[in-house]
Amino acid sequence: MLDVAASGGLLLFTTFVLIPLAMSFYVGFTDQNPLLKDANFVGLDNYRELIGDESLHRALKNTAKLTIAATIGANLGGLVLAVVLDGTSRYYRVLRTMVFVPQVLSAVVVSFIFVTILSNRGILNSVLGSIGLESLAEPWLGKPDLALWSIATVVTWQMIGFTTVVYLAALQSVPDDLLEAARIDGAGAWKRFSKISFPLMGQGLTIAVTIVLITTLRLYDHVAVLTSGGPGFRTETAVFYLLRMGFTNNRIGYASSIAFVLLLIIGSVSAILVSLMRRREVQL
């Protein structure tokens, strides 16, 4: 009975993930056009082309930069906020609720808020102007490097909501008696955190890092609202480029081959990372 019930779930997964994935894998070897029914088999042409595709390489590089920045930023930020917010009074509970709010909002909403802040005539530049720091005003979304960091900042800000919650739960699962014993032995706050709490938070670290990583490697919505991949396609992410190839340049076949390369990258990066971090996890 249990086997039958469980296979229902597996059947759904097969129907909506595995079969479409196999179909998409096949499309990667064709010249499928979104407007036409028929496609020609082109063998490895798409894969050969993507090896030399500089726009794709740039999109992958952008994705890598965003992923590294957001993963480090969101986890450091989350860890710090978690330590700061690890209190018991109801004030702390209210503060903790507020920190999670960005994660509750959609990427479209969050990105729009930041467009009003970061655009040239936006809030940040006007505040800088009003306190006499006009020289620091910048086109935050209009210069390629700055724009990429702006996107990273927005994603990091939103993900901090998530990581903080995870780290708070991890911190609160550290047994009080361990910390109390260390305190009696004369260990300071930093030492208690670095020697006891942090090593015991391995499991939370694995979850937080993995989820942020997987989310940013597939980033699309934030980029669509903040920069549309510009200026000059220079803030395109891999998924953004994939969709542009598919639906603007009519090359669904090529887009599918890119998708599989991306899948391979996401899969291997997360597999390596998870196994590395698992090894560090300390079990009680």
């Binding site: 970061l118 655009s119 040239n120 005539r121 910048e138 086109p139 935050w140 979304l141 209009g142 210069k143 724009a147 510009g230 200026p231």
Partner: peptide, 16 residues
Amino acid sequence: VDAGALGVNYDGATNA
């Protein structure tokens, strides 16, 4: 044209 103009959208330019 303004050096930061790639950060200005259609509405921003209109308003300027």
